[in-house]
Design a binder for these strands. Structure first.
Lengths: 350, 350
DNA sequence: GTTAGCACTCCGCATCCGAGAGTGCTAGTA
DNA sequence: TACTAGCACTCTCGGATGCGGAGTGCTAAC
């Protein structure tokens, strides 16, 4: 919007910052008097008023009505967030909570994420969310056909502990020879990534006996589902009830829309993908900066976690635009960092 | 409470029923006039007033204040529910939705339940929930040790498609011989139920070489976690956003408590276990009949689904005490029925 | 450029009032 | 004896009114 003014003058910035922090704390529109007294700028309320009027003119603050205090606009929050120190301090209790959480060695990333999302929601009092890594580049440790009597199961196991399965009815005419053949053929893709293996399987399917053909395709489909389908692309959510905490913040209608989206994983995923754009550090999307978050009057704080130098997943929180950004960003950053270390451990052998 | 009056007289029952249905429909306290006109009892509002006063005396109705209409008490709902015909009719659209849902052949019960819960929440406009079957009596198809390089994985596969895994670091001193030994030993429990297999493994652990000992125990633990731990005992929830639909019904505070409990699977599970008591058909718990539902001002409608004659799981909905019980019970019953048929299919080989 | 002072605006809150809904009661009717 | 008509009464809800206070914007002085 008004990005043409990169700098704001130190005092205007200080006022804006004070307004944001006070409003986040109290939830009430904040007046010039309050700032003059508490922000320690050593100027009178009249001066603050002038600055505030200017900030409003510039689009950083707004008035609910003539004689209320000011509240930050999305743009105001944006400026505040961008001016935040690159790294905040965790409170001791928070630090300990994080350390404690990661102390128990669970080695299944999916489980770790569920826990981490809960942790984040406790730390911040907002809802936590995470996107697990895609399987695309994960090497296959196994791919087999499991005989379960009346049904068969295709079973795929990834290097990092990912397990995918697909159960289906046993085809009527299935010879023992075919099963053996399939087993042997499936073995050939061991060690490939999920993506490469899919291509390889399609080629194999063309070569094998008609009996085996469908089953090999089924195996390819299992891998496809693991990398693309509903099962693969999911969002881990936790601590949603925190959002209902604060009646001040949301009207029930808005809250409902938020909950609704959180339940539709695919849509939620798209939002998170939009959010997790270029930046490789903590990323913040505020209210109307994204149509969907605008609809909720909410903000999202996310950070990627990575193994080595490749981003493997995303974790973050969603809360009201009137969010304690500093604390949220610090917590998200810290958890993402630990998660990255853990992810490295999980694939140290590469 | 006032269970000493088993019968209520046909007209009182009719009035109560009319009040419940009208209140469920409108959400407003209902007056004598409304009943006199719409319920087709052929008596004047004055008579209705007398009956209502009596019903209030008996604890079936209550007054928000002197000059408002009546609304049902929990006891009133209870009487209404108990007097409902044993089986309601589905609307055509509902019937089609259910048929369509089960038409696509997904054969993984967990996935089916997720879908069914969504289906129920759509059908009823409340939140759907389900408890998957416990693995206790499921026979093991496989139990193996998977070598993933720096880590190992215990993998258990059940007859009905259940897959459990546990990843852990490879012990430093692990000989190839030990791995082979373990593989062979683990093979011995194939075909046993999860429960029996655990016992067997503990016995085996005592016999094998020290190297193998811990790994066998780990395998036993994987089975234990599958049958008892957090991973096993979970509740599938869906359509929660529906509950935020109706601002009339809940205060934000109450809603928050409900959401909170829904997120704590263990607690939720306990509630559902309490609810799913003796009855083998649709079961209804209304408001304060259970402390937890009382706290939410909500009711739960559940039905077990079964394979053959053993109950394997539970499915249902949770909504406001002011719930359309007839419709909810009908939908839950129908879905549970289809689910039972499916469960039978899934283990037809027994 | 900053500040004190002040008039002004507008919200929030309490109060009040009247309309309307619904009750409870009484007396009359079948 | 059971039902009904009528009516006075109660209580909520919505709108109108008035008032205090918070906070602003402006002006004039420092």
């Amino acid at each position: 919007m008004a990005e043409q003014r990169p700098e704001l003058g130190p005092r205007k910035a200080a006022v804006l910052r004070a307004v944001v922090e006070e409003y986040v704390r109290s939830g009430e529109p904040v007046g010039s008097e309050t700032i003059a007294e508490h922000a320690g700028l050593g100027v009178s309320s009249a001066t603050i008023r002038n600055e505030m009027a200017a900030l409003e003119e510039l689009g950083y603050l707004k008035h609910p009505h003539t004689s209320a205090g000011r509240i930050p606009t999305d743009q105001g929050y944006r400026h505040y967030v961008d001016s935040l120190p690159p790294s905040g301090k965790l409170r001791d209790t928070q630090r300990r909570a994080i350390a404690g959480h990661f102390a128990e060695a669970i080695l299944d990333l999916e489980e770790v994420l569920k826990g981490s999302v809960q942790l984040l929601s406790r730390l911040t009092q907002y809802a936590g969310l995470a996107v697990p890594p895609s399987a695309n580049d994960e090497p296959l440790v196994r791919l087999e056909l499991v005989d379960m009597g009346p049904t068969l199961m295709i079973l795929a196991i990834g290097q990092h502990g990912r397990v995918d399965k697909q159960v289906f009815d046993r085809p009527e005419a299935l010879e023992a020879g075919a099963v053996a053949e399939i087993e042997r053929r499936l073995g050939a893709v061991r060690g490939m990534t999920y993506l490469d293996a899919q291509v390889a399987l399609l080629k194999i399917a063309a070569e094998v006996s008609p009996d085996a053909h469908d089953l090999v395709l089924m195996a390819a489909d299992t891998l496809r589902a693991a990398t693309q389908g509903d099962r693969a692309a999911h969002v881990v959510v936790g601590g949603v009830s925190n959002l209902a905490d604060d009646a001040q913040t949301w009207r029930l209608q808005t809250l409902r829309r938020l909950f609704e989206t959180l339940e539709r994983e695919q849509e939620m995923l798209r939002v998170l993908q939009d959010v997790t754009g270029p930046a490789d550090q903590v990323r913040v999307t505020i209210g109307a900066e994204h149509p969907t978050t605008g609809e909720w009057e909410a903000s999202i704080v996310t950070a990627p976690f990575r193994a080595g130098d490749t981003t493997v997943g995303t974790i973050g929180v969603v809360g009201p635009t009137r969010m304690d950004y500093l604390s949220a960003m610090t917590s998200v950053r810290a958890v993402a960092k630990r998660l990255s270390e853990l992810a490295v451990e999980l694939e140290q052998e590469r």
